[in-house]
Amino acid sequence: MENLIGLLRIRVKRGVNLAVRDVRSSDPYVVVRMGRQRLKTRVIKKDVNPEWNEDLTLSVTDPSRPITITVYDHDTFSKDDKMGEAEFEIRPFIEAVNMRLDGLPSGTVVRRLYPGRQNCLADESCITYSEGKVVQDLVLRLRNVECGEVEIQLEWIRVPSTSRSI
């Protein structure tokens, strides 16, 4: 097994204005991929603005590997339809995790990332030091689809045996 750096908890909060893939709505779920890891949320029936509020945890061995989020529409009798995807980098987040932040007031913004051609951000994303943890809220604009965004939050979980910095 590759060297585990730590765990990344991804809270898949909600989808906003997702594409309609059934008659009037969709039955969306999210698949999160990083390397060979693949995790998925539960299906939410007939909702283009679903609230998952579900935590998925990835093992991080290579911080330069991007994470892909793909939204699908669950179909009972046919192949699930793709409802767009987004990709994001975790290196800026991990760099913030490795900064000496002890003593900073809770709620301090450590770094801001802005939407651009090189990313799927729909809005400014802040990496924040909050109650002893580093968290990042992201609103990702889905690609290869007519509309839709997914809101997620990242949180780093240190693994005791991996005290080395990244």
Rank of each mutant, 00 (worst) to 15 (best):
D80R: 07
P160D: 03
V48Y: 04
R158Q: 13
M99A: 15
V12D: 04
R100D: 10
V20P: 05
I10G: 01
R42K: 15
R42Y: 09
R14I: 00
K13W: 06
K13R: 13
T108I: 05
L154G: 04
S161Q: 11
I5G: 02
D75P: 01
L113E: 15
R42V: 09
L39A: 07
H74I: 03
K46C: 10
Y129W: 12
L140R: 05
S59V: 15
D81F: 10
L138S: 07
L154H: 07
E85F: 14
T57D: 07
G35N: 05
Y72P: 03
R11H: 08
E155R: 10
D47N: 14
A86P: 03
D27V: 06
L56N: 02
S163V: 12
D22W: 02
M99C: 11
G103I: 03
I94F: 12
K79E: 11
A96K: 02
R42G: 09
I90T: 02
R100W: 09
P92Y: 06
N144Q: 10
W52C: 02
S78Q: 14
G84L: 03
V23M: 10
M34V: 06
I127G: 00
V159R: 12
L113F: 06
W156Y: 05
A19Q: 13
L8R: 09
N98E: 15
D137T: 05
D27E: 02
V43L: 00
T61H: 13
T41W: 01
M1I: 06
V60K: 04
A86M: 06
S161I: 09
R91F: 11
K79C: 07
M83T: 07
V31F: 05
S106N: 03
E151T: 13
S130M: 14
L101G: 00
W156S: 00
L104G: 00
G15P: 07
Y29S: 01
K45I: 07
P50Q: 01
I152Y: 02
D47G: 06
D75W: 12
G148W: 00
S106A: 09
S26M: 04
R117H: 15
V23E: 12
I10H: 03
V32L: 12
E89C: 13
L4T: 13
L4S: 08
K46R: 15
G35R: 00
E151G: 02
Q37T: 04
V48I: 15
E151C: 11
S25M: 01
R38C: 11
V32H: 10
E87T: 12
E149P: 01
N98V: 12
L4K: 09
R36D: 10
V20T: 14
L142E: 01
V97G: 00
R9H: 05
R100C: 07
L58Y: 03
I94N: 07
